Amino acid sequence: MFSIGRYSLAQLNKRSHKENAMKQLLVIFLMSALVLSGCATLNKNECLTANWYQIGYEDGARGFPDTRIGSHREACAKHGISPDFRAYLDGHEEGVIRFCTAQNGFAQGKNGYQYAGICPPSLEGRFLDGYDAGRQIYAVTSAIRSAESEQRQNEAKMSALEQEIISKKQVMFAAETSVEDRYRLDGELSSMQQDLGGLEQRNRQLLVDLAQAQAQLRVLEEKYAYF
């Protein structure tokens, strides 16, 4: 658990208002996405044999809000079946208890899960302790993946550019190449060398950024090893 002593009352209030606003936006986004997706959550056989308590439990344990039952209702209505709302909500409540732990919050945060405010007040604090820690690791890990991807792309561009430079030099110094073409090729080579220098400079910076991010990741993993 993070120590509350790190924050002043004003900071806590500001953080609380910000988190509440974020939760409301996330809930609205998730509900809109479910409505617009039009994807059936259950097939005919699943609707016919549905254990609505179990379905509610699984949805809650996976971090879905209880509004997900609307998607189940829409899917099963096509087959003339209505959900057992009470059983679903009872199951969902139990599933949420399993979901809203500090350890699971940490795991969900690391995986990039977008929290939609489904945890009850009695459990939310512990969940957010883990979730906030996991999100820190997720942010650094994402930055590392992005830098590694850019570095691979840069190296591929550098390799292709180096080969093109070699080819143009061979053409420029060929006996049959006219003086006019040599001047043109020399200008093109000068531009390509500048591009290559820019890629090399960016690659060096990426290596520095990667080293710093990897060091930061090790610090965070050690700091939050108790989750």
Results as ranks from 00 to 15, higher is better:
M31I: 09
Q54F: 01
E74A: 15
V35F: 07
N43P: 03
E58Y: 06
Q24W: 13
Y53G: 02
A40P: 04
D84P: 00
A33T: 12
G70A: 09
Q11I: 00
L25S: 12
S71N: 14
S71W: 03
F85S: 09
N43L: 02
L48S: 15
S32P: 08
D90Q: 11
S82A: 15
A33N: 14
C76V: 04
G56H: 00
E58T: 06
R68Q: 10
G63M: 03
Q24G: 12
G63H: 01
I55M: 03
G38R: 06
V27Y: 08
A50P: 03
V35H: 12
H17F: 11
R15I: 07
K78G: 05
L89F: 08
G70S: 09
T41P: 01
E46S: 10
K78P: 02
C47W: 01
P65R: 02
G91D: 00
A50W: 02
L30K: 12
D90I: 04
L42S: 06
T41W: 05
W52P: 01
F85D: 10
T49L: 06
S37T: 09
M22H: 12
L25F: 08
R86G: 06
C39F: 11
N43I: 01
D59E: 07
L48N: 07
S37K: 11
R62P: 08
A10H: 09
I81T: 01
L36Q: 12
A10S: 10
D66T: 08
R62H: 08
L25V: 08
Y57E: 11
G80Q: 02
L26G: 12
E19H: 06
N20C: 11
L89I: 13
P65N: 07
R73A: 14
S16P: 02
S37A: 09
G80K: 03
M22W: 13
A87M: 02
